[in-house]
Nucleic acid binder design. Structure first.
Lengths: 257, 257
DNA sequence: TCAGGAAAGTGAACGCTGTTAACCGTAAAC
DNA sequence: GTTTACGGTTAACAGCGTTCACTTTCCTGA
């Protein structure tokens, strides 16, 4: 436990939490995320924040990480509306919630998922590259695989560099739960995430026909196209109905302001 | 022709060209694109630029449009290394050039393809949504279809809103060249673009294992996955070899600064 | 218990940003 | 030849990230 914390450390932790809180409030209000605005909202002067973050980019990274963390909880919560034995349904519901969240919170999405990890410190890079949402979706996909054992590429079928990447990932995190010989599953996950990211990012940035965004047809189409690879071809009608139900529940209100 | 232009109009046009030139120089040097920097580089004070652009965002849109235009020329030029009867090869070479350009010019890519079209003026929105590169790839894909007539969904197989979107697109532009009953082709294009965008954007933002980015395996995999829908399954080995050849030609030098 | 020191916060300042206002010369237009 | 509009200026404002020197406060170690 972190009960071994001195009073100062607890105070410091609380301040970090307030930084994140103030930042998220700003974003939620449609304002720009700026160091000074965060400081002002905290009732503190701007240079004071430099006791907690090294730079503006550092603040962004911190906030992005926490936003991802919080958002992922809602994705997971959405899945819990379904029984544990419906792994496929849970994955798709989470993914649909992800899209909904992204469209409703475009600034937050950009912060977390369109934030260039150029030459940033390796620490943060890893934190974001293998994010909370990444953990969740990987886990949920593994659950699907445990239930129906859809075929995944064998390690020696993968291109060498891909084999390296899935056997020795940049962050030796959750992926460890997948046995080494089944790591083709991780490659399948990356493919799926890439496709999901494509639709959602295009939708969030508005680089798509507004009517298609509004309807979510490209999103559904992407899922339908990918589902067979997860051995979900037979189950698809039911799954699509579930996804469309969630889509309809949040349709109508296009991007406000 | 625009020969009917008065002297003032020509002068004005030249100034616009210089604005774009200065902006692109800044981006190429790794600097941030800022109104003041552009003005300084032109040997002019910042407020003077407001005679040409209404705001900073307007400048960004202008530059983004021109960058897309110029980049598209290079994508097209790359295709011209192949004979006209190799439509599939031409498409894939252009697409590979697009990826290469994006990775080599991440700031430019972000400007053009990750620039939120939130509540901007409808004019610019359309200009970017159906961009030069969009035109090129649509054309090239149509060329593939003219050569091998791969199956495309019939209009009445499409979801209603998609049918609307492809029969009456936001901008009645190049798509007109596709007969109305063959507009399923446009839907197929949108699917392809979405997948391509997903890989490239993730790569550019660095949200992927560096080794996979470097090798381009996810990019190739995405193309391979999509090729059968273009009736290119049989031709794929040749096409993949071509793509990999282009990939190797530009490998080795990872992202500088 | 008391001195020392680190942590946290302040105010002032620098250089940058986008943007507006008032003003002026010059070149096109009638 | 007069008028007008265009293209540029300077000055200024508000806001940004960031640094520096300084003060207060609270924890720690002898």
């Amino acid at each position: 436990m972190t009960e071994t914390s001195t009073r100062r450390e607890r105070q410091r932790e609380a301040t970090y939490a307030e930084i994140v809180r103030a930042s998220r409030e700003l974003l939620a209000e449609g304002a720009e995320l700026s160091l000074r605005a965060v400081a002002t909202r905290m009732g503190v002067t701007a240079p004071a924040l430099y006791r907690y973050v090294a730079s503006y980019q550092d603040l962004v990274d911190l906030v992005a990480y926490e936003i991802d963390r919080a958002a992922t909880e809602t994705f997971a919560a959405a899945a819990d509306a379904l029984p544990p034995d419906d792994a496929a349904g849970r994955l798709l519901v989470s993914v649909t919630t992800f899209r909904h969240w992204a469209l409703a919170n475009p600034r937050e999405f950009s912060l977390v998922f369109a934030n260039p990890i150029a030459d940033a410190a390796c620490v943060r890079r890893e934190l974001i590259t293998l994010s909370s949402s990444g953990h969740l979706f990987t886990d949920q996909m593994r659950e699907v695989w445990l239930q129906n054992r859809f075929p995944v590429p064998a390690l020696d079928e993968l291109p060498p560099v891909v084999r390296e990447a899935v056997t020795d990932p940049v962050i030796p995190a959750k992926v460890e739960k997948v046995a080494l010989e089944d790591r083709g599953l991780v490659w399948a996950y990356m493919q799926g995430w890439t496709q999901l990211y494509g639709v959602v990012a295009l939708e969030v940035f508005g680089h798509m026909d507004p009517r298609i965004i509004e309807s979510g047809e490209m999103f559904v189409d992407t899922l339908r196209n990918y589902a067979p690879r997860l051995g979900l071809a037979d189950d698809w009608p039911r799954l699509e109905a579930m996804v469309r139900e969630r889509l309809a529940a949040s349709a109508g209100r296009a991007a406000p302001r």
